[in-house]
Design a protein around this nucleic acid. Structure first.
Lengths: 338, 338
DNA sequence: CTCATTTTAGAAATCGTTAAACAAAAAAAC
DNA sequence: GTTTTTTTGTTTAACGATTTCTAAAATGAG
């Protein structure tokens, strides 16, 4: 049988009101003596208030809902760390749901969060149908969009400058002396990060004197092995001597294909990969990567959300843009000085 | 203003009870006509029941709490997938907390879960103080221990046979022809997995004719770079020609140290590493690993817990033991046939 | 010593939902 | 045509906490 506030009240021979006041640090209406009596009763009965009842009364749960699309990507564990640390510091707890990049699931999960009356939501969006986000924003539901962009200009969020990241990566490949630089990317026109990284690729190509038609885009299908398609593509495009790979999964597929074909990295084909991981420097060859500030991203997202929750008036929408960083290793080493 | 069941009742011109019955699929007491009226009202008002109120009334939240110790270890994303899929199939949602291997934090998080009235808890235990687990078990709180063992024989859980995994790994190194096999492990006598892996190491050594004194244990400190300590240790123990590394983090440190020293893997020192990851085969050299069935582990843990939650009588405690698997790659290749 | 004021504590209403008990109307049985 | 049964729906009381309003005791002023 669960201990309730009434049990504590009875044991301490006071009213529920008094117990409630003491729990919530409202000692103005109590003598030291009753306070001690009540605290002792709480201690002895090991009373813990029922968060459901508290939440119901206060319409506040101290829970933040997070929807991410793919827990497997190790990038998220860093982001989550930032979110968790920030939440903990302000007394919030995190409820993490996984949409698996599935639009329908994401919609269901948002409903579930509403049902559970979470105080705010952080979303890594997968939906093409932007209406869902519009609705949340319109309802003034505390919301932070993370990593990917949504159309609504009133959205608050934290993203990384993917155009810039891609630009740095491709520029490095070109300055390294490569003339046939391709980009490998998952084929999904609705994901802003992929779009931006291809955009950054093109921007760097044009800035280095290449024409739009000289851009080589290797589009891959998500969710199944891509080694064979990649091999076929590379055979068809024999002038490719460098690949900018737009995420970790793609990178592994590309490396797998190149090893299969016996291609030397970086001698025959150089690689720069998006996302730095603990493994990057131990790969054969060690990978040159674009490192995103995941922890900071998490921190900022959580803090934005908490500010929204705890501020009465509507906050100005803000879009924090973080800057990625190039980490140079053997898969496309230092730029030769001439 | 939030829509409540009373608003729906008013709009459909019926009582709250009727609405409640229809929401919960209890149509025995309603005509088709009222049912349609109510459903239409729910639709129009976009009514969503308040899970807090429901949970309060039913003393059931459909939430499962999970405490893990380190989200960064990619092994957990696989386990979580298994847990999530199983939970979703039975209508449960997951609340994930992170203890960061901190005993005090873990205790707090358990309290938090009790406060929030989660239906059950899955714990990856970090506590030396086993009393906490004893208490939960005694209180018949639905609980599943995952990956690590606790002392209490009444605990239900899912673990991998670490003694066996380590035995297979070390045996492989010995059969490969190595005579100076060491084990690299984090120094923490309270973590059952580490203990068992060292035990499996010793068992394999003894079974292959080595004496207890010939066992070489490289103990590492968690949480700080260990490359220098490893280098010093290897210099002191020049007869070491193989290392069984007991987890991913340790493996990276060991490889880092060996590369620093210019040691050839596997020619000078062969490696078998615990935990298969998506990266393992792309490392230089590709790693021979012990693969744990993470997804199944998650599935079984979640299913055990749900069974406990949904069964009225007390279930027999059960400890599922899963079997790990050796994946052979270049860091300690196929056993030479003679 | 009386009346006003402050301090301390309690009773009752409330949050949104569900379930048991109850009432009314309709259908069936005699 | 009355009684019994069935169907349909409502009233009311929980669930466990908080908070407003109210009351009693203690203190102080005159």
């Amino acid at each position: 049988m669960k201990i309730t506030i009434a049990d504590v009240a009875q044991k301490a021979k006071v009213s529920k009101t008094t117990v409630s006041r003491i729990i919530n640090g409202n000692y103005a209406h109590t003598t030291e003596e009753t306070k001690q009596k009540v605290l002792r009763a709480i201690e002895e009965l090991e009373y813990r208030p029922n968060a459901l009842a508290q939440g119901l009364k206060a319409t506040k749960t101290n829970v933040i809902g997070m929807i991410l699309s793919n827990l497997k990507n190790p990038f998220w564990s860093t982001v989550l760390e930032g979110i968790e640390d920030t939440c903990r510091a302000s007394g919030y707890h995190l409820m993490i749901f996984n949409s698996n990049e599935n639009e329908l699931v994401e919609k269901e999960l948002i409903k579930e969060f509403k049902t559970r009356r979470v105080d705010g939501i952080i979303i890594h969006p997968t939906c093409k149908d932007q209406l869902i986000y519009d609705r949340l924003i319109e309802e003034k539901h505390p919301l932070v969009i993370i990593n990917r962009r949504v159309d609504n200009p009133m959205a608050t969020g934290v993203v990384v400058d993917n155009v810039k990241g891609a630009y740095i990566a491709v520029n490095h490949l070109l300055k390294y002396g490569r003339t046939g630089v391709a980009v490998a990317v998952f084929q999904n026109p609705y994901v802003s990060t992929w779009k931006e990284r291809v955009e950054g690729y093109k921007k760097a190509m044009l800035a280095n004197g290449y024409a739009e038609e000289q851009c080589k885009i290797l589009e891959l299908e998500e969710g199944k092995p891509q080694i064979e398609p990649i091999k076929r593509w590379i055979k068809r495009n024999s002038d490719v001597d460098a690949i900018f790979s737009t995420n970790t999964t793609v990178t592994l597929e590309v490396i797998g294909a190149l090893k299969d074909m016996g291609k030397q990295i970086p001698h025959e084909i150089a690689i720069v990969s998006y996302d730095e991981t603990i493994w990057s420097k131990y790969i054969d060859p060690p990978l040159t990567t674009i490192k995103q500030p995941g922890y900071v991203m998490g921190q900022q997202a959580a803090q934005c959300l908490i500010d929204q929750i705890e501020t009465k008036e509507m906050l100005e929408p803000q879009m924090n843009v973080l800057v990625p960083e190039l980490i140079i290793r053997a898969s496309c080493g230092a730029i030769p000085q001439d």
